[in-house]
Amino acid sequence: MKTTIAATAALLLTACSGGLKVIESDLQHHHWNLTAINGVAVDPEIKSDLEVAEHFSINGMAGCNRFFGSATLEQGRLKAAPLASTKMACDPITQQVETAVLHTLSEGATVNNKGQQLELVGEKYTLTYQLADWM
């Protein structure tokens, strides 16, 4: 019990003193699956995802196209510009997902990391991701 309390206290102190470092380490080396846009569930068959790797290189599936690039995290905002992507044609529903993902990442979004859930809150879209696994 004392070990658990000490570990929790250390984590809280680190979070308070580390600022954005905690967010950075929580984002990197994870694989996230998109579950909702603006609170509306995304069809799991679309399989849109996001991976954040070392030095904030990012990649994933926007909708029907893969994307990749570099991101920055400044004052709690994640921004990935410019992004490169493949250029396959999407069906209309998948294209809506793809547009929301690429727009939000390119324009920048406030990061709300809730452990197993990640929200990227942009001006137009809020993307909700579920943690899939460690990379």
Rank of each mutant, 00 (worst) to 15 (best):
G69E: 01
A80W: 08
D91H: 12
H29A: 14
L50P: 00
M88T: 12
L50R: 05
V97Q: 14
H31A: 09
L50T: 10
F56S: 04
N59K: 15
V42F: 08
C90M: 14
S85V: 03
F68Y: 15
V52S: 05
T72R: 14
V42W: 06
Q75R: 13
N33F: 03
E51A: 02
T86E: 03
T72E: 13
K87H: 12
S57Y: 09
K79Q: 07
F56Q: 09
W32C: 04
P82N: 09
A89N: 07
H30N: 10
K87F: 07
T86S: 08
T94C: 14
P82V: 11
G76Y: 10
E74G: 04
T94E: 14
S48R: 06
W32V: 06
T99G: 10
A80T: 04
M88K: 12
I58N: 00
A53Q: 12
M61P: 10
H29T: 06
I58Q: 00
G39D: 01
K47V: 11
A84I: 03
F68D: 11
R77Q: 10
A84M: 11
D91N: 11
I37M: 03
L50S: 04
M61K: 08
H29G: 05
A89Y: 02
L78K: 13
F56V: 08
N38Y: 08
M61R: 11
V42A: 08
A80L: 02
